[in-house]
Each structure stands twice: as C-alpha cells, then as structure tokens.
C-alpha cells in the first residue's frame, strides 16, 4: 500500500516537474546581463530554502497523516505546548531570512547604482508605444508594434515574434552600462525586458532612473508590465544589442539622416511639452 502511494507520488512529481521542463520553459530566461544573473542566482537560492522547509514541514505532516490516523487506531496525545520548540522554530526561520537578506541587499544596491554609465537613453511611455531619446546624440524615435493588423485579427497566420516585434528597436552597445531615464506622457507604464533583468515603472511628470548592460549581442524582447488601457498588450519592447563598433556606425547613420530626425524630434518635443500641461484634461475629453 505504502509502496503504491510513494510510487504514485514519484510519478506525479515526475509529471509535474520533468515533463513540463522538457515541453516548455519553467524557469527565468537565461540571464543576459550582470543584474539578471544575480536575480537568477537569488531566485534559485530562495527556491532551495523553500524546498528544504517544504520537505521538513510536510514530511512531518505526511508522517502524521500516514501514521497518526484514527483508522489505524492511533490514540491522541494531549500535549499542546512546548516552549523550547516554539522558541527554536521562531529563531531558525529568522536566521534563514537574515542569510537570504544579505546577498539580496548587495543586488539591490547594485541595481540602484546608475553611476558610471556610458550612455543615457530617455524612455517615454505613451498609450501605446515607446519613445527612445538618445540624450548625447540627439537621436529620438518612436518604437511601435509592427505585427501586421491581419495577424492581430486572426486573418493571417501569426509570425514567430507575434506581439514581440517593433518598427524601431532600441539599439544599444554591448558591455556598456546603459542608463535609462524612464517617464510617461500619459498613464503609468512599465518598461520590462526579462532577459536583461530590468524593469522600471514610467510615471507622467516624474523621471526614474535605472540601468542595464547587455552581455552579448542579440535581440532581447520585453513588454509593458503596468496596465495602461486597452493597448496594454500591444506595446512591446525590443532591445537590439550590438557591438560598440556597430553601435557607433548605427549612431552615425542615424545622424546622417539628421534633417528628418531633427524635425521629428522637435515635433515630438513640442507635443510632449504640450501634453504634460494638458495631459489629464485632454485625456478626459478624448
């Protein structure tokens, strides 16, 4: 009987953990930045702590369920207190938590440290797109969902990057600290790229700084993670990390088309100033 039960439990465990592990992702995305790496490590550490506690606590509970049941004739004990035990199981969790807090604190401080960045990009959330302004280079553009409307409406087969593609990705150099100055032109948004371990809410009228650094060239995809209206699911983020040399070439190319870029930026600037003043009124009347 007990063998059947434990066999069934092992099987269940197998189905619950190993099968999905093969079929789809069950963990964080492979980290692609130093901070994402630390987050990955912290998450794994907490999971091990939880697993240890789970085994001890529910091992005891399972033992009681199997052995201390009325149907096997177990007579109830009468104890209902044990001061020493209660003190011990208050202090041990406290110590475990202190042990977890130490590495977490180091990561918090690293995430908040935006000093020494090579490049600052202003990120502005709109309903429902992003604007990226490269402060040192005078480059500014909007980044809008590029999935064809026919695919959104189920009228055409969906491409691989359905809802994860934009017309103009954010281009950044690898191996450099990129400081983001995040703000919003209307409601609260949040700028999130899972593999890079970076997320910052965007508030109208406030600028919040965060940073990331891409380890290797690649395309990193993310989303808006704060409900911002009906287009919330439709304002993805794409970060195109390239080598510093390629990045320099990209900047030069963007600046060659300066004329058009400059007028566009000026226009955006003007409309942004206008929007800040009248954001709520305009939005209300719309």
């Amino acid at each position: 009987m007990r063998k059947t039960v434990s066999g069934a439990l092992c099987l269940l465990f197998g189905i619950l953990v190993w099968a999905p592990a093969r079929a789809f992702e069950i963990n964080l995305k492979p980290p692609a930045s130093p901070i994402a790496e630390q987050i990955y490590g912290l998450h794994i550490m907490v999971l091990w702590v939880c697993l240890g506690i789970f085994i001890v606590v529910f091992g005891a509970m399972l033992y009681a369920i199997v052995n201390h049941r009325k149907s096997v004739g177990h007579k109830p004990a009468l104890f209902h207190e044990n001061l020493a035990l209660e003190v011990v199981w208050t202090i041990i969790p406290f110590l475990i938590l202190a042990g977890m807090a130490y590495p977490a604190t180091r990561t918090v401080l690293a995430m908040k440290n935006t000093a020494g960045s090579a490049l600052s990009i202003e990120v502005t959330g709109y309903q429902w797109k992003w604007q990226y302004t490269y402060l040192p280079y005078g480059i500014s553009f909007f980044s809008t969902l590029s999935t064809p409307p026919a695919q959104l409406a189920d009228l055409a087969p969906k491409n691989r990057h359905y809802l994860e593609q934009v017309d103009h990705p954010m281009v950044v150099p690898t191996g450099e600290k990129i400081r983001l100055l995040v703000t919003s032109a209307d409601v609260v948004h949040s700028w999130f790229v899972p593999a890079l371990g970076v997320k910052q809410d965007a508030f109208p009228g406030f600028i919040k700084a965060t940073w990331f650094e891409a380890d290797a060239p690649g395309v990193y995809r993310g989303y808006c993670t704060e409900l911002c209206g009906k287009g919330h699911a439709f304002m993805p983020i794409v970060v195109d990390a390239v080598t510093p040399a390629q990045f320099a070439a990209w900047v030069a190319a963007e600046q060659r088309g300066k004329k058009t870029a400059a007028t566009a930026a000026a226009k955006a600037q003007a409309s942004r100033g206008h929007r800040t003043l009248t954001a709520s009124r305009a939005a209300r009347s719309s």
């Binding site: 506690i53 606590v57 005891a60 509970m61 009681a64 369920i65 201390h68 049941r69 009325k70 149907s71 177990h74 007579k75 109830p76 004990a77 104890f79 209902h80 044990n82 035990l85 209660e86 199981w89 208050t90 969790p93 406290f94 938590l97």
Partner: peptide
C-alpha cells in the same frame, strides 16, 4: 516568521493526534 509559526503549530497539532 509569525506565518511560519502558524504553519508549524498546525502540523504540531496533527502530530500524534488521532486523525480522520
């Protein structure tokens, strides 16, 4: 910590009881 105390207390209540 206090949440853990509650869980431990429930398990200890079951421990050596006469469960149904």
């Amino acid at each position: 910590v206090p949440t853990g105390v509650k869980i431990f207390n429930w398990v200890a209540t079951m421990w050596r009881g006469s469960l149904s």
